[in-house]
Design a protein around this nucleic acid. Structure first.
Lengths: 185, 185
DNA sequence: GGAGACATGTAAGTGGTTACATGATTCC
DNA sequence: GGAATCATGTAACCACTTACATGTCTCC
């Protein structure tokens, strides 16, 4: 569901192609949602079937033709309905393969887990850099889409990204230290 | 994949039924993985097809019969292989429907978002209680499965759960305050 | 001439959810 | 008598991934 409404939400800023949407997902929403190109194109097709968006082919002399999607009034209506009708239990999706590995680490031992955690710590540190890039992209979209009140909500979302990464780093560092104190290396 | 190995990992502690596994998922692994009964039974069937587990029906006079699954040497081997061969990019699955809503909140406005965040904060606070219960369940499993070195890894996992929830709470509180300072109510 | 960005899709498969179906036992 | 827990499953569906397929333009 979220992908569906994410696409509608972005199309509300401006008409776009599937390719554009994929790029925005990559460099702005990416820390809490991602989607493969193939899924985006398919979802756009079903959205068009449901009359939530409408597409027009834009013939360009320079480069391949582009199918540009525009949100319809119905699309806007359904987007707002989704946003206002929030179910009691919208779980943040906790599925975490890495934690499954940690949980089962008795099978590989503390030394091995230590190495896993150290590698993971590096990943978390690079996550911060990706978030910085995202935060810096916000003003760019401000110009591109000529939005203003949106910025507040984008900032609150990005801030959640930072809180998350920072807590991951803290946990990894603590756990590494703990394992070392126990004599693992 | 993770469900598959989660089941194998738990079955390594002790032979169990699908129903048992479901219960353990609910009160011990739940904060980073969950699964519906139907999925667990199906997965156990494919694991048996692949010779990773083996099942025997236990006839009980009191109550319905139970199909008890036992991990095979092949299952143990594959579990360990999975744990040692960690791919470079095991993403923690970030998909977060709630954040998608926050990100798109310009469509409903700051007052509405404030209410969403306040409800969410309560949910986070109840998450802490669930984690406390999980942490307290650890010794129980220690006796049940007669494990000891596992405890260390369970503790490290649960600790991650706490870090996560605490950062969620902090973010929600900060964002609520921020919105209030801006005059939303 | 080749790499990489631009651009759009289809097909098959996996993992997860929802809905359905059944029936015994225990405790109030 | 009724609700909750124990216990096991099937079928249909939905969301997402992986692999495949095609072709243009731009910059080095």
């Amino acid at each position: 569901m979220s992908l569906r409404y994410g696409l509608l939400g972005l199309l509300k800023y401006s008409p776009m192609t599937g390719y554009d949407l994929k790029k925005i997902f990559e460099d702005s929403v990416n820390y809490f949602w991602s989607a493969k190109t193939s899924q985006i194109y398919r979802e756009l097709q079903t959205l068009e079937k449901n009359k939530c968006v409408q597409s027009n082919i834009e013939i360009s002399k320079a480069g391949p033709n582009r199918r540009v999607y525009t949100i319809t009034p119905l699309g806007i209506k359904l987007l707002k309905e989704w946003l206002t009708n929030m179910p009691e239990e919208t779980d943040e999706d906790n599925r975490n393969e890495f934690l499954m590995r940690v949980f089962l680490s008795s099978n590989i031992g503390g030394n091995e887990l230590l190495r896993l955690l150290e590698a993971r710590l590096k990943k978390y540190q690079s996550d911060i850099k990706r978030l910085d890039a995202t935060a810096q992209a916000i003003p760019k979209y401000k110009e591109k889409f000529d939005v203003d009140k949106e910025l507040l909500y984008w900032k609150i979302s990005v801030s959640r990204g930072y809180h998350d990464v920072q807590s991951h780093i803290q946990w990894a560092e603590e756990s590494i230290q703990y394992l070392k104190e126990l004599g693992f290396k």
